[in-house]
Design a binder for these strands. Structure first.
Lengths: 224, 224
DNA sequence: CGCCATTTTGAAGGTTTTCAATGTCAGTGG
DNA sequence: CCACTGACATTGAAAACCTTCAAAATGGCG
């Protein structure tokens, strides 16, 4: 699969608009926005942007999933979040992005030029408020990750990871269980600051304890 | 030492105003603010507010130091930050605070009623922008902590902690080194998700490696 | 000066990492 | 259609590191 672009978007028909700042825009603004956005389809494992790139766009996730990561001092990557449809990334970092993003499954993104976005931010207070709330939410998620990492027990971290994904699913209208894990064991391990082996062993133990039931390699019934 | 209150503040004479949103206020607003703020002096280890308390005030730190922590699912506390003079805490959580704060040394705080603060937020765009930047900065600090915690090596975490404090000192106009550590080994350990013993051993090793030179129990020359 | 809290040091035990090998699954080509 | 391949996941065993529990040392403060 190759990257495909779509122009002539009609934002009024957007399937995820209700979840985004766009829902706060006036009809006039929305019509205007339709002319500046691009829809992009990316295959799995596509880099969208890198730390240090000049900020040019805001990206909304229409479908698929994106991982966000930083590089640590030693050069290793550290995943700081997984983005679901309705999530966005790309702003509040000053002049350049301060993280990397990569699709982990085939994904469709909506790309808005930063200048247009800034305009709405300046002129439309509800948009600004919405955006502000999004940052606060990111902060909460970061602190949840801190709480997860502060447990030095692989099993507890993995349990928390499944709970986190379960909650994410609920907030995106999916069922609480079973949980679908599109990310690789490597990505889970990275997010939890463990090795893939430790994640694998923890999952095995949880299955033995009947706390997880594997429906497939990436789907689990939760009994936590 | 007991808590002492001061009224009749003159915000124009505030020693930390330049570091705070107040520097974005008009003279008229500042005069008005002077009538609503209170200055409070607290001894070491005083709880200022708890998770779940209704949001009533914004607190600015004039001098001293405050630790911010959350309670984990198991009831343990998890420190998520240390606040220096010029830092503030108390908003962007909805109706209630979602963390605990406690002084770790004798501290003087400036307490602003949330209603007054919200008014400036609504009416004065630079104040809002300033405040927004503060949240973004908190997010960056949270992600730094994630990067620290993702290293499963006590020595590396402790090194990063010293570097972090060193940077904090610089941004508050203090020298890069020596570093002064007002927090207890317990607090350091908690922030780093280690035990006090591990922190102590890591510091000993770093001293042996000449990477740290202890000038006193809480002051270290850095050679990192 | 002496007490008490905090910090440091010690030894044993437990968990994770590391390195290696095996197992599993999807996609490819014969 | 099936065997093969390569990426990913799981399992195994040894080593490394942190935690735990205990004891000694240090430093602040009355």
């Amino acid at each position: 699969m190759k990257k495909t672009c779509t122009y002539n978007i009609d934002c009024n028909k957007c399937e995820i608009r209700s979840k985004l700042f766009c829902s706060k825009l006036e009809q006039v603004e929305l019509k205007e926005l339709s002319n500046t956005v691009t829809h992009l389809e990316f295959p799995k494992d596509t880099n969208i942007l890198s730390e240090g790139d000049p900020i040019t766009h805001i990206y909304n996730i229409i479908y698929g999933m994106v991982k966000v990561y930083q590089l640590k001092a030693n050069g290793d990557e550290q995943i700081i979040g997984f983005l679901y449809p309705g999530d966005f990334f790309g702003s509040h970092e000053g002049g350049t992005y301060d993280f990397y993003t990569q699709t982990i499954v085939p994904s469709k993104l909506c790309k808005i030029p930063i200048n247009d976005f800034e305009k709405y931010l300046q002129n439309n207070r509800p948009v600004y408020d919405d955006f502000y709330d999004a940052v606060v939410n990111e902060l909460k998620l970061a602190r949840i990750q801190i709480n997860i990492l502060s447990q030095n027990n692989a099993e507890d971290r993995v349990i928390d990871f499944f709970k986190l994904i379960s909650k994410k699913q609920v907030s995106y209208g999916m069922p609480q269980s079973p949980v679908t894990i599109p990310m690789s064991r490597y990505d889970i391990a990275n997010y939890l600051a463990l090795t893939t082996e430790s994640v694998s062993r923890a999952i095995t133990k949880l299955k033995n304890k009947q706390m997880l039931k594997a429906k497939s390699l990436n789907t689990f019934e939760l009994c936590l």
